[in-house]
Amino acid sequence: MSVAAGGGGVSAVDPKKILALGVIGGIIGIYATPFNPILGPLLAALGAVCGIIWGADAIARVASYGLGTGVPSIGYMSLAIAIIGVLAGLAGGVMIGPAYVLLAPLMGIVLAVILGGIVALVGKKIVGMKIPVLVTGTMELAGAASIAVLGFSAAIAGSLAMPAILKSVVSTGFIALLFIMCTMAIQHPFNACLGPQENRVRTLKLAASTGFISMTIVGLLAMGFNNSWWVITIIGAIAWFISIRAFLEASKEEAASMEWGGMWPKEEEH
């Protein structure tokens, strides 16, 4: 079903660099949340955008083999895994003791990665899928998705503690919005750019723009919960404008030609 079947291929971007950007940028951003009431949530949202870019690269590597179910399905699955992992990690962190606020987010990411690995192993061993990078790819995707969910949740709540996230993200229902929004942000870039002429740099430019527009929306959601909502919204909107312009220019450069066909004629010609 997927047009991109064939897989492998040399990516224009080193996957290790994107992985490092996602893991390091994401975790620094998330852990910076409690330190400053204005900059903290902003850094958390930027961390989530790093996670989305990493996720978009990971999904491109897995789905280029042709899953048979379309690109969005693995995106939805990774976000489902991430949300279960993150909520369980944040809640279960209480067992560690007083230090739980510090360790719980990391526990959430690790739980999501483990669950992702198990689902992929089941897919490979029981269902018999033949994608060589399925296990590592799904683990990366689950990690990226959990960083995106955690970062955006921390940006809305202004805190990493479970009670604050429960109050401002879960009971308001924003968690369901984050679910679908992060899925779209992660799966859309490759779903839109796939094909034989896919250029990973261009795909990642689109990933940056989907990430930043999600960040803008998260800024608006945070309106009632912290004072830095306008910082997140404005910076997200500016960054979205820059990245979508870069993507449109890249598309224009790589297209064979672009012509304006004009509007359709007023009367149908028979």
Binding site: M77, A80, I81, I83, L87, V127, F179
Partner: peptide, 26 residues
Amino acid sequence: AMVAGIFALGLFFINAVVASYNIGGT
């Protein structure tokens, strides 16, 4: 209710996608 709902929704998606991998798409 929200936590239970989002957990059940996550479970729904994971199982739906695993099952569709088994079917092979259609």
